[in-house]
Design a protein around this nucleic acid. Structure first.
Lengths: 230, 230
DNA sequence: TTATTAAGATAACAATTTGATTACATTCAA
DNA sequence: TTGAATGTAATCAAATTGTTATCTTAATAA
């Protein structure tokens, strides 16, 4: 299956007991570029939250064992502050109210329009200060500007601040030649005497960290001008 | 008599000209644990806002002298961003729209169900980032923002006020790099001269208390930038 | 093509900066 | 006034970054 160009790596957790509905939801969100983890019950969710750090929960209120709202209320009691959107077939006032009360950030009634669902998720994420633009992607590199985490393939790479700033700048200006002057102004804020080779060395170190096998050729030197990311 | 502002106790201001209704509203919110200040007119409200810092305004649109919506529009003009919910007996579209236009975050039509009112207040507060949940969790740390209790694993840890504020800030912004500048502004609100190392020392003390064996590595220093909780 | 030259890559070294920690001083609140 | 909390100074350790030197690569002209 073709994976659509992913603008972000925001992780969504869905709890929905109906297999068909769960698959539909997974499809909707994955198509939008979210990373989705689905659960048919609340059983393993708490454990999952311990280990991962998803950005939002989508919870069906009508789950077989526990009421979704109770489950979320319990999560809140335990200290989880993750945003929640409830899915519910009911639309009686009492249910909606209870949903909000137990710590939901929004709710959607089934049947729903996929677009509306996506819009609400988007709105809740925005309110929670989670932006899809915090993460930048380039080839197999994903950098998170808020955490300064860098993933190459599926491995974390430790970069220094200088290296991170460099990589960020290149990714934000990918496919453009960044001249040495530009780099100097942007990263080093020139202090008069500036050794030509400083940039070479800094880039060399960066290359070595994100591509230790030296077979990816992220950077192309433009002779006498600068570099570009390719 | 003025009661000292307790941290994390949410304060609600109600403006309602009918004495009975005001008392009912005060009762409803107080029962839910909110701190309530009621006004029979808009007269003293602005002065009150100068001094206190309530989390939300509940405003009747049909006030004797001024229209509630006009009053709120004026507040907005003055720069108050406090969330507002309108109470209104009217329900024609034009009124509702006017209410939103003048800076309301939600509205409720009388007669209302107490539960619905509470739910809407709750939702608006949540949208504004004001949480009524006082527990936050991060890995094996649970902090109670109200009592300032801190549990690590299953042991209570005694933190000083400064240490608690630091930990709370980091947990609320986990997985993000908090720069030294940010920390200084958020915790120390400093006045110019500020010893660089104050942050190091404060964090060092915090680390020692929540991780005396030094094997948990809650904090990762980002060299030359700040720290993040991981 | 080949020699020449300017630029790029990289390793090793050194300087500098920053972080951690301890001990001590000061402040603040009971 | 006293003790806890917090800021400051000093020391040590470690990480980052710039510099230098050497080698490699690419452009250019004879």
């Amino acid at each position: 299956m073709k994976v659509k160009n992913r603008p972000n790596e925001i992780e969504i957790v869905i709890i929905e007991d109906e297999q068909d509905m769960l698959e539909l939801l997974e499809y909707i969100f994955q198509k939008e570029g979210y990373r989705v983890t689905g659960f048919l019950s609340t059983d393993k969710v708490e454990q999952f939250l311990e280990e991962e750090n998803p950005s939002i929960l989508i919870v069906d209120r009508n789950l077989p064992k526990v009421d979704g709202a109770d489950f979320v209320a319990n999560l809140r009691k335990l200290g989880y502050a993750i945003p929640v959107i409830f899915l519910t077939a009911k639309d009686r006032d009492s249910d909606i109210i209870e949903g909000f009360d137990s710590g939901g950030d929004d709710y959607i009634t089934k049947p729903f329009k996929p677009k509306e669902l996506l819009a609400r998720v988007s709105a809740v994420l925005k309110r929670s200060g989670i932006s899809q633009y915090d993460k930048l992607k380039y080839r197999d590199i994903v950098i998170d500007c808020k955490s300064q985490d860098v993933m190459v393939g599926d491995a974390y790479v430790n970069l220094t601040n200088l290296e991170f700033k460099l990589l960020e700048l290149f990714i934000k200006n990918s496919h453009q030649v960044l001249t040495r002057d530009f780099l100097r102004d942007a990263i080093w804020e020139d202090d008069g005497d500036f050794n030509d080779k400083t940039i070479n060395v800094a880039l060399s170190r960066l290359k070595k960290k994100i591509d230790p096998k030296e077979d990816k050729n992220y950077f192309t030197p433009i002779w006498g001008v600068g570099y570009k990311l390719t």
